[in-house]
């Protein structure tokens, strides 16, 4: 696990520093007459970005390994960890809601589609899932915003909070959450339901299902007791793999709905080449991917007695 993270860090550091653009560019704005007459070489020296890449990397990895520190943002000098932690609640709320709702909706759809394969409703769901998978999220988000926010005026278009209207804070946040969470959920339901459908289909054609039916077990019991529980196994893996999304946020959706989460932090720091923050966000996500996979493997063993680790 450690060597893996190490390699990830090297690759991302290289990609980031070799990409064109200069972190000090944000200190000059040629569009403003109040142009900062800053000594850019001094800033480069302070940030250490004038050093060769391997020196920069050595400095960064030393800071991580020895001090357990993500360093300070180039932009405002705040600790990277503080900037990341500050974003977690917003992202967790948005992604958690979207993922939770998606599973709630996708699992019944998946089961139904498998049991009534090629029925008109299954075909409809299939059509909708392909739509959900293939519509670019930024387009769908803007459409939803135009329809539900601008035309119908049901939901706010941006941000996580209103400006102190009559709603209590929790309801206010919920009110702002609906639109971005639905857009995210639409895409996720599409994926999860396809996954559930195929997983369920695979199980339904197993011999023991036929045996159960042959024994005269009711169809409901066959589907939910025999088939569904077995079909859930791959879904559990899927849940484990959602962990990085849960904390990593949705880059595009957060940007469009001005949701103050990790995704926006990532995009913002990439645009201004804030290396420390980019690395911080990348590493947090990488760690979560690794943990998510590990968790999925462990869960798999827990729920499926056929799988055991360490014994051959």
């Amino acid at each position: 696990m450690i060597p893996l993270l190490f390699i990830i860090s090297i690759v991302s550091f290289l990609l980031m520093t070799m990409a064109p653009g200069d972190p000090t560019a944000m200190f000059v704005n040629p569009e403003s007459s109040k142009g900062a007459e800053q000594d850019l070489s001094a800033i480069r020296d302070k940030l250490g970005v004038d050093k060769p890449i391997y020196v920069q990397y050595a400095k960064w990895i030393k800071m991580i390994v020895l001090d357990g520190d993500f360093g300070y943002s180039f932009q405002d000098g705040r600790p990277v960890l503080e900037k990341i932690v500050e974003r977690i609640p917003a992202t967790l709320l948005l992604m958690g809601t979207a993922i939770f709702i998606s599973f709630l909706i996708a699992i019944p759809i998946g089961i139904y589609s498998a049991v009534r394969q090629y029925s008109p409703l299954d075909n409809t769901f299939t059509f909708l899932s392909f739509l959900g998978i293939s519509i670019p999220s930024f387009f769908f988000a803007i459409m939803m915003m135009l329809v539900f926010s601008l035309k119908l005026g049901w939901f706010p278009a941006s941000n996580m909070r209103g400006d102190g209207g009559n709603l209590p804070t929790a309801l206010d946040i919920l009110y702002h959450l609906i639109l971005p969470a639905s857009v995210l959920a639409f895409g996720l339901v599409a994926q999860y339901s396809r996954f559930m459908r195929s997983s369920m289909l695979e199980v339904i054609h197993q011999d023991y299902i036929r045996t159960a039916r042959a024994k005269g077990v009711t169809e409901g019991k066959v589907v939910f007791k025999h088939a569904f529980r077995n079909a859930l196994l791959p879904i559990i893996t899927l849940i484990g793999l959602q962990l990085p999304h849960l904390f990593g946020g949705a880059l595009i959706i957060e940007q469009i709905f001005a949701w103050p989460g990790m995704g926006r932090l990532a995009i913002g720091s990439i645009f201004i080449r804030d290396y420390q923050v980019i690395m911080g966000v990348t590493m947090v996500t990488a760690v979560l991917v690794v943990i998510g996979n590990l968790l999925a493997d462990i869960l798999y063993a827990v729920v499926d007695p056929r799988i055991q680790y360490g014994k051959t």
Partner: peptide, 10 residues
């Protein structure tokens, strides 16, 4: 992209 543009322009 803006950051790149600024860099090259400067």
């Amino acid at each position: 992209e803006w950051s790149l543009f600024l860099d090259k322009q400067q």
